[in-house]
Design a protein around this nucleic acid. Structure first.
Length: 155
DNA sequence: GCCAACGTTGGC
DNA sequence: GCCAACGTTGGC
């Protein structure tokens, strides 16, 4: 069992959007970075823990707890010729980009980035390293525990 | 394989 | 909107 932090722009897909979706589950598509793709393809497994992070918004931070809900499969959006995620070099026989399904489990107290930066347990978190901008980053068990503890504190 | 130019991310 | 940091592209 591994843990991850996955970034989403709440204007696109917020944690509440996923909670409201059928079975609290959505396809995670649109990852167009090879390192993040490789995490999806090679390392993620159903049941892995996911910190659902809101980026590019007024108060970035972790909005809730989710889990990986499928094995990896080709990202449909790479074949949609009219879509912004279309990749002309991808073919159904040789897909480039990968999706997994993500299921929302538990909304938390919103944990802002500013507060995360002040937590000594998160000092080494990949998300918080200078220049880090990967949309999917690994989280250690210790970091996971520290974040969950905060998310579950009463508001 | 190098590297300059360009594009994107994302916090502020 | 700014800008630092990083990734990708493509000429050579």
């Amino acid at each position: 069992m591994q843990y991850w932090l996955m970034k989403s722009e709440p204007d696109e897909v917020s944690f509440d959007d996923v909670m409201a979706a059928q079975a609290h589950t959505v396809a995670w598509f649109g990852v167009r970075n090879y390192q993040a793709r490789n995490f999806l393809r090679d390392q993620m497994a159903p049941g892995d823990g996911v910190l659902f992070y809101h980026s590019s918004c007024a108060a970035p931070g972790v909005a809730g707890i989710a889990e990986v809900a499928s094995t990896a499969y080709p990202d449909h959006s790479q074949f949609e010729t009219d879509g912004k995620y279309f990749d002309p070099k991808a073919t159904p026989d040789a897909p480039r980009w990968i999706s997994v399904d993500v299921r929302a489990l538990e909304p938390g107290r919103y944990l802002p980035l500013s507060e995360m930066r002040a937590m000594p347990e998160l000092e080494d978190m990949v998300l918080l390293q200078k220049g880090s901008r990967l949309s999917i980053t690994p989280v250690t068990a210790g970091q996971w525990q520290a974040v969950l503890k905060r998310l579950r504190q009463r508001a």
